[in-house]
Amino acid sequence: MTQNLVLIGHGMVGHRFLETLAERGALADPAAPDGPGWQVTVLAEEDRPAYDRVHLSSAFTGATDAELALCATEAALFKDGEGRVYAVGNRDPFSGADVIAHGILGTRDGRTVVASPMYKQEFDLLTGECLDDPSVRLPVHEV
């Protein structure tokens, strides 16, 4: 029988708790909602996945959100006309929505870019740099 668990907050301790449940096979299988295990609901104030708060000050010396993340984040994959594959973070930094994978692939000034489907900012797929606001970047993943 599935039991419900509400986790308040998704910091380092909460994240480790969920990892332990997963390692022990104690989480419910979404494909079998009446099966054994815990169905978890996470209530968190922050709109980002759990991150390493101990090393948070390294963000001031260049550490990225992806480097501080404790769990995997969604990636958006693109293949250009030449067959090159790119992977960047799926979260639009301007809207907070996971929509970059639905963006429009193109080029701008000789750079391969994706335009966010939300507010249309364009991001360089090699560097993650927002061409409309260079202070903003998407995380870039190795393919």
Rank of each mutant, 00 (worst) to 15 (best):
G25E: 03
A28W: 02
A28F: 03
A28D: 04
A28V: 00
D29A: 02
D29Y: 06
P30Q: 05
P30T: 11
A31I: 01
A31H: 11
A31S: 14
A32Y: 15
A32W: 14
P33E: 02
G35L: 04
P36T: 09
G37R: 11
G37E: 12
G37P: 06
W38L: 15
W38I: 07
W38M: 11
W38T: 06
Q39S: 14
V40W: 06
L43S: 09
E45A: 15
E45M: 12
R48C: 07
R48F: 13
R48P: 01
A50Q: 07
A50W: 10
H55I: 01
L56K: 05
S57E: 12
S58C: 01
F60W: 12
F60Q: 10
F60A: 11
T61N: 08
T61V: 07
T61E: 12
G62E: 09
A63C: 05
T64C: 05
D65E: 12
D65C: 04
A66H: 08
E67Q: 15
E67K: 00
L68Q: 11
L68K: 12
A69T: 12
L70G: 05
L70T: 07
T73A: 03
E74A: 11
A75V: 10
A76I: 09
L77I: 14
L77S: 11
F78M: 09
K79I: 00
K79M: 00
K79P: 00
D80P: 04
G81R: 13
E82V: 02
E82H: 13
E82P: 01
E82R: 13
G83E: 05
G83N: 07
R84Q: 08
R84D: 03
V85Q: 15
Y86V: 08
Y86I: 09
Y86D: 07
A87T: 12
N90W: 05
P93C: 03
P93D: 05
F94V: 09
F94I: 08
F94G: 00
S95G: 05
S95R: 11
S95N: 04
G96R: 11
A97K: 15
A97L: 15
V99R: 02
V99W: 00
I100M: 04
I100D: 04
I100N: 02
L105M: 02
G106I: 09
T107N: 12
R108Q: 13
G110W: 03
G110E: 09
R111I: 13
R111P: 00
T112Y: 01
T112R: 07
V114P: 01
P117G: 06
Q121E: 13
Q121C: 00
Q121R: 10
E122H: 03
E122R: 03
D124N: 13
L125I: 05
L126M: 03
L126H: 12
